[in-house]
Amino acid sequence: MSVILHVEDEHSVRLLYKEVFEELGYKVIQAVDAEEALKFLRGNRPDIIVLDLKMPGMGGKRFLDKFHKMNTKIPVVISTAYPYFQGDPTALKADAYVVKSGDMTELLDSIRNLLGKPD
């Protein structure tokens, strides 16, 4: 069972993503902010990270800077309401960039592709 670390400050989004991911057979660990996610990563290794960009305190971009200094090779999918860097996720050192919407198909496809799992 693949483990997703979901980093998201909005409670309703955390609930929705957790429900959808678990229905698909993923184990879900959630962090309410980037600081909590970094603490989790010090002793754990999820298979993939789903990361919001805009969060109070340390945002997703600063998280990515600190995360990459850890030299951990975990794929990162940015899931945000802001399409600023959508054209080039590598500008943020992410593996995929998905703009949040009611249709989670693109996000789920990105996760499956990065984990090397078929639909």
Rank of each mutant, 00 (worst) to 15 (best):
K39Y: 04
Y84A: 07
G59R: 09
A96N: 11
S101D: 14
G87C: 01
L41W: 02
H11Q: 14
M104H: 13
V99F: 05
D109S: 05
M55F: 04
K100A: 00
D119V: 10
G87M: 10
K93H: 12
E35R: 13
L38D: 06
D33I: 02
E22Q: 15
G116N: 03
K39Q: 14
A81G: 13
D47K: 00
I4S: 01
H6E: 09
G59F: 00
L24E: 15
E10G: 00
V32L: 09
K100N: 10
R14Q: 14
K18C: 09
F21A: 10
H68M: 10
G43R: 05
L115M: 12
N44C: 01
M104S: 06
I4D: 08
K93M: 00
A34G: 15
L64N: 07
D47T: 03
V3W: 01
A96E: 12
Q86E: 15
V7H: 04
D95M: 03
K66M: 06
A96M: 06
D47L: 00
S12F: 01
K100L: 11
L41Q: 02
G102D: 10
L115R: 07
E23A: 07
G59M: 05
K61T: 12
A96S: 11
A94K: 08
F40L: 10
V99K: 11
A34F: 03
G102Q: 13
Y26T: 13
R45M: 02
G87E: 14
D88Q: 11
L115P: 02
D119N: 09
T80L: 02
V98R: 13
M104C: 02
Y26S: 11
A37V: 12
E35D: 04
V98L: 05
D95T: 04
A96K: 15
D88K: 15
R42P: 00
Y84D: 14
V7P: 05
G116T: 03
V50P: 01
D103T: 02
K93Y: 01
D95C: 04
K66L: 09
L114I: 07
V13T: 15
L115Q: 03
M1A: 12
L24R: 15
